[in-house]
């Protein structure tokens, strides 16, 4: 094998690289979400589209709770509790699916305007759509670690994929904590023509 002049072992080096790489990816993605938020402020200013508050509250709560179970999953596998890890991951995945159904299945259906209806419509579907797309990728990621977890691939020492999935999931959750007030809470609600 190759000789490295690095004092870290190859596995340690890889973990250091992976962690830094994921944080940089999140930073990069945050610029995209930041741009969407800027577009929302630029076009809508102190107004917001009139939306169904109850649905918004419920889906936000679902996503927040899912982050709790995501954290349980990561902590469980870090302490070698495979069973707890699998249960928490499955719950996170279900809650993620619940959020997706809540946004795309309910919120998009009951909203009285479409993406072509003015700047508020365009912004609403852009923000919820881009975020839902990220939740969808997170759900796929969760399905991958759930499957590999069932196959017994992770241990207390080696579970980088779980850590990565958890960090990504928390990031997507935090993005929603900015998007939710920007869409549902701040400013004056105006009904679209």
């Amino acid at each position: 094998m190759t000789i490295s002049s690095n004092p870290l072992t190859a596995a340690q080096q890889k973990l250091v690289n992976n962690r830094l790489g994921l944080w940089l990816f999140i930073l990069s993605d945050a610029f995209m979400f930041g741009g969407i938020l800027v577009a929302r402020i630029y076009l809508l200013g102190e107004t917001r589209p009139h939306l169904e508050q109850t649905t918004g509250f419920i889906i936000t709560a679902i996503l927040l709770v899912s982050s709790f179970f995501m954290n349980r999953a990561e902590t469980s596998i870090a302490f070698g509790d495979r069973r707890g890890f699998l249960i928490s991951t499955a719950l996170t995945l279900l809650l993620g699916l619940g959020f997706l159904i809540g946004v795309v299945g309910f919120e998009w259906r009951i909203t009285p305007f479409g993406p072509g209806d003015g700047a508020p419509g365009a912004i609403f579907y852009l923000m919820t759509g881009m975020h839902a797309f990220h939740v969808l990728t997170g759900v796929i990621f969760l399905a991958v670690i759930l499957r590999n977890g069932l196959m017994g691939h992770y241990s207390a020492d080696e579970h980088w994929a779980v850590e990565a999935c958890a960090n990504y999931w928390h990031f997507v959750d935090i993005v929603w904590q900015f998007f939710y007030p920007a869409l549902y809470l701040v400013g004056v609600a105006v009904a679209l023509p």
Partner: peptide, 29 residues
């Protein structure tokens, strides 16, 4: 780089789905 991707994507969406980000007639800018 994310921002050029976003701006181009928004024009693509405007063309595909009629989203009025940059269409003054729809309140865009």
């Amino acid at each position: 780089t994310q921002l050029i991707g976003l701006s181009f994507m928004m024009v693509m969406f405007q063309r595909l789905f009629g989203m009025g980000f940059f269409d003054p007639a729809k309140g865009g800018n």
